[in-house]
Every structure is written in C-alpha cells, then in structure tokens.
Simulated scan of single mutants.
Amino acid sequence: MEVENIKPWLFRVQPYQGESLSHFLGRFRRANDLTPTGLGKAAGLGGAIAKWEKFRFNPPPSHQQLEALATVVGVDADRLAQMLPSAGVGMKMEPIRLCAACYAESPCHKIEWQLKVTQECDRHKLSLLSECPNCGARFKVPALWMDAWCQRCFTPFVDMAKC
C-alpha cells in the first residue's frame, strides 16, 4: 500500500444562516485541527485564508478560489460567496461588531454586522457592540471565537444582550 495515495478526511461543518466567512473558517479549522496556513495549503490558496479571516477582501475572492475552498470544506462555492459582503457594499474590517441577542439565538458572527451601513440590529433594534460592555476589550476576529466570550474578562456573548 502506498501511503502517498491516502487522502485525509475532514469533518464537515455546516454554515449558519448569515454567517460571516471569518466565523465559518474558524469553526471549520477548529473542527479539523487546522491552522489558517494548513487550510490554505489544503485548498491551494496559500495565505488567502488568514486574510479572509480578518475581513481583508481586497481583491475579493474569485469564483475559482471559492471553488478550491469549497472542495476542501464541503460547502458549495455559491454558499461560500453568500458569506462575503455584496459587491459595492462598504465593509468595516474593524472594529468587529456583535448583536449579543442574535448571537444567543444563533451562535455565529453575521456578515451584516460588519457592513458600514449597519449601526444596529434590524431584528432586535439594539446597537451593535464593538467591545465588551463589562471590561471594554475589543472583540477578536470571529475566526477566533471558540468559547463565545470576551477574551479578557470571560463575559459570555449571550450575557452581553442585557447591556
């Protein structure tokens, strides 16, 4: 048996409705114990994964790049494209923003929260948070949200809805 011909298998991760690509990539990488570099190599995308996790979409991912990523993550390229900001829509790379009430209902970062035109949650009519209301720490990029709490004081995101 030739070891070179054995293909690695990966755990599949289903995207949430409205989830940002950054958050999805982080969840997929953690489920498969991959680094951004490891996922980039598996998809043949080099350092693109690390850029996308930080919302650096200039230039935006091409359809060919999304197809390559889709092959590895097992999610259709068109579905991955839905996790990106729409063409021509301004986006904030920083600060990372959050509606804690939405997060309590569906534990994921929504791409709409990073759009420049979005100042509050349409559903809950709450201002988007850009820092922990308990300690003032800014939120890390969603790809790093593995415990769903403030990285400094450990206040759970769902508890921030009360603020």
Rank of each mutant, 00 (worst) to 15 (best):
D76M: 01
L69D: 01
A50P: 03
K54G: 08
A68W: 02
E67L: 10
L66I: 11
M83H: 03
Q64A: 13
E67C: 07
P61E: 06
K51M: 10
F55M: 12
A70P: 01
L84C: 00
A77I: 00
G88Y: 11
P85R: 05
S62V: 06
G88N: 08
D76W: 03
R56G: 01
V72D: 06
V72M: 06
P61C: 11
A81H: 10
G90D: 03
P60H: 14
R56N: 14
A81T: 03
V75I: 09
L80C: 10
E53L: 05
Q65F: 03
A50N: 09
Q65P: 01
M83G: 00
A81M: 07
K51L: 13
G88R: 11
D78S: 06
G88D: 04
D78R: 14
Q82S: 12
Q82D: 09
W52V: 11
K54L: 14
P85K: 04
K51W: 04
S62N: 02
P60K: 12
G74Q: 12
S86Y: 02
G74K: 13
L69K: 08
N58E: 15
D76L: 00
P61S: 07
A77L: 01
K54N: 15
P59F: 10
L66A: 08
D78V: 02
W52H: 13
E67A: 12
D78N: 04
P85V: 04
